[in-house]
Design a protein around this nucleic acid. Sequence first.
DNA 1: AAAAATATGTGATGAAATATAACATATCAT
DNA 2: ATGATATGTTATATTTCATCACATATTTTT
Lengths: 134, 134
Amino acid sequence: MNSHIRRSMPLFPIGIVMQLTDLSARQIRYYEEHGLVSPARTEGNRRLFSFNDVDRLLEIKDLIEQGVNLAGIKQIFAARQQQHTETTPSVAPKVMKQDLSEEELRKLLRAELMEAGRFNRASLRQGDIARFFH
Amino acid sequence: MNSHIRRSMPLFPIGIVMQLTDLSARQIRYYEEHGLVSPARTEGNRRLFSFNDVDRLLEIKDLIEQGVNLAGIKQIFAARQQQHTETTPSVAPKVMKQDLSEEELRKLLRAELMEAGRFNRASLRQGDIARFFH
DNA sequence: AAAAATATGTGATGAAATATAACATATCAT
DNA sequence: ATGATATGTTATATTTCATCACATATTTTT
């Protein structure tokens, strides 16, 4: 299961994320400043958000609308994270992936897409990037 | 099935598409100039590509690598389009959607996401934008 | 109540990403 | 050899985004 690669691939500039989440740039940056999201950066220092990042922002927005303040949200995320590490059968504490450069991530995805695409593409049917973000 | 909405939502700036497809900006713009892709535009006239657009570009790249020239690709796409309309049981030739503004598209998606997210988000599990791009 | 902290808006300034256009060039077909 | 195709390269303008500083409304704390 490498869906987590697809989901953590930096894809969206802040402008799109604003529209997707209905949050202001100020808010998004502020949340980042407080460690609630950690978007990647381009070489030129522009933020690039992944699906996971956008997800996270939607959760933050939700919680804020329910009156939770940033400190609270931080705790909630921390708790979830902890529960995760507890629950997770840490079988192979080897070299957890995760430390792939954005470049590598994209190459990986592209490889996947190309490969998978051959079927449809060869037979001239419509291609399918989107399908792979299940 | 409104996956086509998700797939046709303008999301990516050209820089990301370049990395996703390994095409140069020049190439991408040239293909657009010849009607092989039609990315949306921001208010400020910047191109915004959808999953479908990226898919299309990957197909174009594939065909070009196989020696097909742009005229050929155009024909191939046209043929596919025609076959589609032939095959398609055009039951309801009513007001085919498709003519939604980008704004509306995003609002729709956001609505979907928010709604669907409530389940997981409420129980504090990880959200799920990516899942909706199946 | 006054002061401090939180969360966000707004504006200035600079840099990065992208747009268009023009010209160069390599490859291919005629 | 000539012309068309496809792409690279460079110049210039515009848009989008980054950071920072200051303003402000709301809570929280003292």
